[in-house]
C-alpha cells in the first residue's frame, strides 16, 4: 500500500538524516558553483543550531561560510544585494519565529525586486529556516508560519518532510533563479537531542539530484479519503493511516512538498478518486493552508466531494508550553485518526 516518493530507494542502501542530506546538497553545490556562500547565526563552527550546516566551515572556510551578528535585517538584505550582483547566497534564519525582526527585507525587497524591475533583476537565493514544535519550546519558537510566506508574492516556498526530498529540494532551490524559502521541521532533522523520529532517517543517493519545486508526492495511495499535508505532519498522517486501515478506512496521503508553486492538480486528482478531503497542517488554521486547499477543490468542482472538507490545524492560539497543552493542538496521529473518522462518518 505504501508508495514512496523516493525512486532511488531501490538503488541506494545508504541512509542519511534530513540534516545530513541538506548539508550534502549544499556542499555538493558549493563545490560546483563558487558563487554560493552560506551565512547566518551559528552556522559556522557550531554547524547550525539544527545541524543544517555541520562541517561546511571546515570544508569551505570562513570566506564562504559566515557567522553573522544577530542582525537579521542587515544580513537578509546583504543576501539580497549579493544575489542581485550575481552571487547565490544561502542564508539561514535560525527559527522562522524570528522573521518579525527582518521581514521587510524578505517580503518587500527579496521577494519584490524581480517584479518591480520588470524581470531585469534576478534574486537567486535560498532562505532556510527551522519550523515546528512538539518539544515544549513555547509560543515564540514552535511555529510553522509557512502560510505567511506563501501568502506574500514573489517567494517560492518548499517544505521537505524526509531526507530524500530535503536533498533534492535543496539542490533545486539553490539552482532556482528566484528567492526560495526552505522550511525544515526540527522534528525531521534527526537531531540527537530530540525525540527519535524513525522518519528522519532515509535513503539518499550520493550523487546530486533535483526534486522539482512545485510537485507534490503521493506518499500513500488509498481509495476512501485524501489527506493533504506536509512536513512533520506527513509522518503523523502515515502513522494515522495504519490505524485507519485497521478500522477499515483506506486513506491516500499527499505530501505537498512545495506551497509555492502549489500542486493543485495532485490534490484534485486524488479528491476526484476518493471524494473526501482532510487537510492537516501544523500552521494556524484561519486564513491559512487548510482553507487554501479547501478552496482548490471548491473552486474547481465541489461535486467531487461526497462529504464536507475537514481541517485539522493549530487552532488560532499561541502554541502553549506545557506538554499536555501543546499536544492538544499539534496534529498528532491520534487527532488525525479522529478527524478522518469524522470525515468518513
Amino acid at each position: 500500500m505504501v508508495l514512496t516518493s523516493t525512486p532511488s530507494e531501490s538503488v541506494t542502501a545508504r541512509k542519511l538524516t534530513t540534516a545530513k542530506a541538506m548539508v550534502e546538497a549544499i556542499s555538493q553545490e558549493m563545490e560546483r558553483d563558487p558563487s554560493i556562500f552560506v551565512m547566518g547565526e551559528d552556522i559556522g563552527s557550531y554547524g547550525g543550531i539544527f545541524s543544517s550546516t555541520a562541517g561546511l566551515l571546515e570544508k569551505f572556510g570562513p570566506q564562504r561560510i559566515l557567522d553573522t551578528p544577530i542582525s537579521e535585517t542587515a544580513f537578509m538584505g546583504l543576501a539580497t544585494g549579493a544575489a542581485v550582483e550575481g552571487m547565490r547566497p544561502i542564508v539561514e534564519l535560525m527559527f522562522v519565529d524570528f522573521f518579525g525582526v527582518c521581514m521587510d527585507q524578505i517580503y518587500n525587497h527579496m521577494a519584490k525586486i524581480h517584479y518591480e524591475s520588470g524581470g531585469n533583476v534576478k534574486v537567486p537565493l535560498v532562505l532556510m529556516t527551522a519550523v515546528g514544535g512538539g518539544y515544549s519550546d513555547g509560543a515564540q519558537h514552535s511555529q510553522c508560519l509557512w502560510g505567511i510566506f506563501a501568502h506574500l508574492p514573489g517567494m517560492k516556498v518548499v517544505v521537505p518532510s524526509n531526507p530524500y526530498d530535503a536533498k533534492g529540494l535543496m539542490i533545486s532551490a539553490i539552482r532556482d533563479d528566484n528567492p526560495v524559502i526552505y522550511m525544515f521541521h526540527k522534528g525531521v532533522m534527526g537531531l540527537p537531542w530530540m525525540a527519535k523520529n524513525p522518519h528522519s532517517l532515509g535513503p539518499v543517493p550520493e550523487k546530486p539530484y533535483e526534486v522539482p519545486i512545485g510537485r507534490a508526492a503521493v506518499v500513500r495511495t488509498g481509495n476512501d479519503l485524501t489527506i493533504v499535508t506536509l512536513s512533520m505532519a506527513v509522518h503523523h498522517a502515515l502513522d494515522a493511516a495504519e490505524e485507519l486501515t485497521k478500522q477499515g478506512i483506506d486513506s491516500e496521503i499527499i505530501d505537498l512538498r512545495s506551497l509555492v508553486p502549489l500542486d493543485r492538480e495532485a490534490v484534485l486528482e486524488s479528491v476526484a478518486k476518493t471524494g473526501r478531503l482532510l487537510v492537516v497542517d501544523e500552521d494556524y488554521q484561519s486564513f491559512g493552508l487548510t482553507g487554501e486547499i479547501a478552496a482548490v477543490v471548491a473552486e474547481k468542482d465541489p461535486r467531487l466531494l461526497k462529504a464536507p472538507v475537514s481541517r485539522l490545524a493549530i487552532p488560532d492560539i499561541p502554541i502553549p508550553y506545557s506538554r499536555t497543552l501543546e499536544y492538544a493542538v499539534l496534529p498528532t496521529a491520534e487527532r488525525i485518526v479522529a478527524a478522518a473518522k469524522r470525515v468518513m462518518a
Binding site: G77, L78, A79, T80, E85, M87, H109
Partner: peptide, 15 residues
Amino acid sequence: EGYPPALGMAFAFQR
C-alpha cells in the same frame, strides 16, 4: 531599508 542590500552589493564586489 536600502542600506542592507548595499552591503550585499559590496560583499559581492569584494568576493
